[in-house]
Design a protein around this nucleic acid. Structure first.
Lengths: 137, 137
DNA sequence: CTTGAACCTCAAGTTACTTGAGGTTCTAGG
DNA sequence: CCTAGAACCTCAAGTAACTTGAGGTTCAAG
């Protein structure tokens, strides 16, 4: 299949596929005589794996590691689990941050609706509020 | 005060302060005869505002807008509220994504613990699992 | 055989900074 | 007054993970 078909089936863009090849997440593709890349089903599988890892927000670096584990019989799959677990911890931390952020923003918008009567910028109490550091950002 | 003191009081790094000046989030700083930047309390207020916005994850671009609103008497503060509200929507969407991701990762790690007995990579059912697209990533 | 879609490469842009090199200025102690 | 070292300066490049653009080639259908 062509790169366009591959990309569509995997759900990513064509430049992204080329980028993945460039940074070593995908093996160097075979070419037609004219120079166009050709792919088989194995390439699709590999790309799906990469895509899936990226959906999980694994950084490119870790995806490379994961891909190596896949192909290296000597490395235990517990390595994959450990990577996933540590990644999970990151995601949880980010979630907590975002939750706090969401709450702050909600309070901010609410208080803006309550206090600010659409007056000019410098007189707006809420804007002033933004310059005061809070505990819970 | 010096840039180092300013940065510490605002809770960001010295290069970041210089960067904010460069991209127009802070006004061009006054200099001592030797070339070192000097700041007054107004600069600290301004930096705190910028910092606070960034804590809220407003993109630089929007912070510039917010800062302009602050200084422009002709622009209503409801503009700020609207920016915040639209930003809140983004944050909520991101939260939802992350929540789904967290759940997926948890299931992933769990099933790895349950199914994978520390065998070699290619035989690991969980790794294979990663190549299969799911509905709920 | 032509035409237009899809492909190619290479370079630069994006975001929000951080890091590094190489050099200058300030400040406190002697 | 002088010196050492901390803090400052500028400019360039690096980071993640792509995207976008320019300029040109190849493929597939009619």
């Amino acid at each position: 299949m062509t790169i366009g078909v591959l990309a569509e089936r995997a759900g990513c863009s064509v430049p992204t596929v080329r980028y993945y090849e460039e940074v070593g997440l995908l093996p160097t593709a075979d070419r037609k005589p004219g120079g166009h890349r050709v792919y088989g089903d194995d390439a699709l599988q590999r790309l799906l794996f990469v895509k899936r890892c990226r959906d999980f927000d694994f950084p490119i670096d870790q995806v490379r590691t994961l891909a190596q584990v896949m192909e290296d019989s000597d490395r235990s799959c517990t390595e994959v689990r450990d990577l996933a677990a540590s990644h999970l911890a990151n995601v949880k931390a980010k979630m907590a941050e975002l939750a706090a952020l969401q709450e702050s923003l909600e309070r901010f918008v609410d208080s803006c609706n309550a206090d600010c009567l659409g007056g000019p910028g410098p007189q707006c109490a809420v804007i002033e509020d933004l310059t005061v550091p809070r505990c819970c950002a």
